[in-house]
Design a protein around this nucleic acid. Structure first.
Lengths: 201, 201
DNA sequence: GTCTATACGAAGATAGAC
DNA sequence: GTCTATCTTCGTATAGAC
């Protein structure tokens, strides 16, 4: 099916963006990584690299959204734990060579269109997380602040840990965030050796 | 003096890195921005772009360290407020077009040398902030986690606000972090309409 | 020590065959 | 619709004059 190869190109692009950043990701690498023929790239994406990157940012956003949707009905601590575990697994599975594609694109964006797409993804995450935290026992106003904090702290912690090539900063940040969420949600307890560390997938 | 022009090249590079990212920053732009003659670039930096970027990351690290050193003796909330205000002013003064040069380099680093430099900067910030928070009334172990959280949340919040081109996410995150610091330092109160917003410099 | 002109390579885009 | 070969642009680096 034609959609197969197209999707593989998008996914490969998202991964490369998360590893090397926007301008650090070349067409040649995408082609090699996806196994796609060079000619078909412009067939599927007439807009070239810009169009492909736009699609990859959207896909990265959707992937996280899909994870969040699975968490409906869980406690606030569970939700936060799962969200942080997602980022931790990105670090461990890539051996600190990958981070967040959306953030990587944001700090090197060369068009408003790209920035809009990235902003839309973050807005979506904030909204979804906020709803989940509210449902999980957090006051609605506070949930908005905690959702933004969770995303910001997670994103930042990934950067710190990539630079230091150590999980130490990420784990410090993750534990701190979980403690705050726990307190804000009325103290649903979490496991002692925090569940963030159980690698999913 | 020869050091003048060299410093201006470094500073221009740091600013461009914060705006456009690593590979998005070209030599031509640096030359234009710094007003330096093209020939003198390789005179001062025989190692070319790599050497210049390395220096710029170090300079960006030092600049924040200098701000932190001014805060010795202040309360934990004051320290956190000043640190967050620093990032908020980067956003407002650049109209959301700039972020953190160290983070931008980290997510697009193409050498271990560069990653090491960035990691060293973050370690330095963490250490310094942790000491300040401890002196400001926070338990020593907790101060390490709060220092990492403050940096991570600040970095992440800058990314969110750049992408959304709005201070909303940054302010949500900053207020949340300040509330946590306040609680952890024994409740030294902060102003009602948070002092993060008073732009320094 | 500063400048200009240029060489070299890489990356994105395109044209035309199959 | 898929592929290959090529064109153009741009960015880094260097060489050599002043």
């Amino acid at each position: 099916m034609a959609g197969e190869i197209k999707q593989r190109m998008i996914d490969s692009t998202a991964l490369l963006l998360a590893k090397r950043g926007l301008q650090g990701t070349s067409f040649s690498e995408i082609i090699e990584a996806s196994g796609a023929p060079r000619g078909s790239l412009y067939h599927h994406f007439p807009g070239g690299k810009d169009e492909l990157v736009l699609a990859a940012v959207g896909a990265a956003g959707e992937r996280a959204m899909a994870v969040l949707e699975q968490l409906s009905g869980r406690s606030a601590v569970d939700v936060a734990t799962a969200f942080l575990a997602l980022w931790r697994s990105v670090l461990t599975r890539s051996e600190f060579s990958a981070g967040c594609a959306v953030a990587a694109v944001t700090v090197a964006a060369d068009s408003n269109e790209l920035l809009d797409r990235a902003g839309g993804v973050f807005r979506g995450w904030r909204h979804s997380l906020s709803d989940l935290l509210t449902a999980g026992g957090v006051d609605e106003r506070r949930a908005q602040a905690l959702a933004a904090s969770l995303i910001a702290a997670g994103e930042g912690a990934v950067v710190l840990s990539r630079a230091e090539r150590s999980l130490e900063p990420f784990d410090l940040v993750a534990n701190e965030q979980l403690a705050v969420i726990e307190a804000a949600s009325g103290g649903h307890p979490r496991h002692h050796d925090d569940p963030t560390r159980s690698d999913p997938a």
